[in-house]
Every structure is written in structure tokens, then in C-alpha cells.
Simulated assay, not measured.
Amino acid sequence: MPADATHEPYFVALGDGRYRPTERASGAWQPGEMHFAPLGGLLTHAIERHRGARHASEAAPLLLARMTFDILGFLALDETAVRVETRRPGRTIELTEAVASIAGRDVAVARAWHSVALDTAAVEGGAAAPLPSPSAMRPAEFAGEWGGGYVRSIELRDDGDRAPGRGRAWQRTAHPLVEGEAVAPVARWIGLIDAANGIAVREAPDAWGFPNLDLTVHLHREPEGAWVGFDTTVSFGPSGQGITHTALHDERGHVGFSSQTLTVRPAPAAG
């Protein structure tokens, strides 16, 4: 199910680094909120676009090795401005930063490390255990307590063996990340990862809140295709902290890992 331009995009490019989110980007925790997953994809897109303009003539590509995202506050479903800066230029490694702001307030920051592509196949090893293919899993849905347009925009498949804090699944979307700008495949791929926090929930989200404060993605190779595979474990500690940790896969195999820091608290309805 490749991206289809007849599907509503998550963002519409307005020019000058400004983007309008659509209802497809709406969040799962409360009305009027943007889900971070597509915003993470948008920040990755902005970084890749910035770097493409800088490095178009270079023979040796730099590949994305790590993305970190920090969520600074409430993500209103409103026009979003993105500014990008190269923090550490280089021929073999480079650090780039992108900041998203809404209504003049910074709401998220992303920092990307890229490193030079080299042939290291002779020493390749250490990959996580394989994940059954999407075709080997069954169509599924997110927990009914999750709301928002983003959750409803995702095609989800799982192995039918979810347990509290543990799950294996695949996700893809037919919705373009950005309308009006060419988008790198890695940006679309990373735009699905933040939903890991909803795959293997330990507690029902209408009873307990566990929003993530950040998202870190480490890659040991470039992902391919539209499907993102998740082998996810969620841990809650005794004092309000938690972690969602995921081995990430594409249809070729293991690609890397993601981690999310959770702030765990009773939902208002639960007292």
C-alpha cells in the first residue's frame, strides 16, 4: 500500500518553512493536539531537505545514524514553523538540528547525526531477532481508548499475542507526510515510529496517562520500504517514570532501535 496522493496528507507545505497540519495529524491524548509521530517525520523531512541542498554534489553520501527528538510542550494542531541549522558540518560526520514552533513558541527539537557510508559488510553482526513478516501477521487496531486522526490513519498488523507491556506489530500508512514538497523515504519511515508507545500498552490509556517526553532512534542501516516493524517492551517504574523500548525492522530485517521516556500518571477520570 504505497503512499497515494488521493489520501489526505499529514501536513500541507505553505512555504518558508511553514506547514499546516491536517486532521490526519491529530493526537491521541486530548482534542486539539498534534500526534508527535507525524511531527517527528516532518522534522526529519526538514533536516533531510536542508542537507540535500547542502550536499547535492558530494560523491560519498552521509546516512542517518541517530535522531533524537525532545518534546518541549503541548503540540497544538496548528500552523507549524520549522527552522533548520547545521550544528557540526563535516565530510564524514555531521550534526543537524531542526526546531518546530507553533504560535511563536518552540514545541519540539530534533538533532540528527549522519555518518559517511562505507562498506562494512565483512564485519556486520549483532542484529536483533527476526520479526515475522507483515503478511504473517493479522490485521489489527489500536486500543479503542486511543483517539485522534493519526491513530485512525495507520494500517496495523500484529501477531495476536499482545500482553501488557509487550507486543510485536507492523505499521504503514497510505497518507503522504507532506503535500507540496518531495519527501525522503526515511522521513516517512521515521514518521511512524512514535506510535510504538501505543502498541504494547501496560495500562489502558483512559485509566493511566503515559505520554512520552522524547524519542530517540538509532539506525545501523538505512530502512527500506513502507512497513515499520516493532518488537516493543514497555516498562513502568515505581515513581512516575517509564520507558518504551523497540527493536525496529523493515521487511529485510533489523534496522535499529528506538526509546521513549514516559511520564506515568493516573488519568484525570481515574482520580
Rank of each mutant, 00 (worst) to 15 (best):
E33K: 12
E33H: 11
H35C: 11
H35E: 09
H35W: 13
F36C: 03
F36D: 03
A37G: 10
A37I: 03
P38G: 02
L39H: 09
L39Q: 10
G40C: 10
L42R: 04
L42S: 07
L42W: 14
A46R: 04
I47H: 13
E48I: 10
E48Y: 11
R49P: 00
R49M: 01
R51F: 12
G52W: 04
H55P: 00
H55R: 05
S57M: 02
E58C: 01
A59D: 00
A60T: 06
A60M: 07
A60W: 02
P61N: 02
L63G: 12
L63P: 12
L64E: 05
L64N: 15
L64V: 14
A65K: 10
R66N: 14
R66D: 04
M67T: 02
M67I: 12
M67W: 12
M67G: 01
T68Q: 14
T68F: 07
T68S: 09
D70Q: 13
D70F: 11
F74H: 09
F74Y: 04
F74C: 03
L77T: 08
L77C: 04
E79K: 08
E79T: 02
T80D: 01
T80K: 07
T80P: 11
A81Y: 11
V82S: 00
V82N: 00
R83A: 02
R83V: 08
R83N: 06
T86E: 12
T86M: 14
R87S: 15
P89C: 05
P89Q: 02
R91L: 08
R91C: 05
R91V: 01
T92N: 01
T92R: 12
I93G: 08
I93V: 15
E94L: 00
T96F: 04
T96L: 15
S101Q: 01
I102D: 08
A103L: 07
A103D: 13
G104Y: 02
G104M: 10
R105Q: 03
V107S: 02
A108W: 03
A108C: 14
V109A: 13
V109P: 04
V109W: 13
A110V: 05
A110C: 13
R111C: 14
A112F: 12
A112Y: 04
H114Y: 11
H114W: 10
H114F: 09
S115D: 12
S115G: 11
V116Y: 00
L118S: 13
D119S: 09
T120F: 15
A122K: 11
A122I: 06
E124V: 15
G125S: 15
G126K: 12
G126H: 10
G126D: 04
A127R: 14
A127L: 11
A127P: 03
A127T: 15
A128Q: 08
A128Y: 05
A129C: 03
P130L: 02
P132T: 00
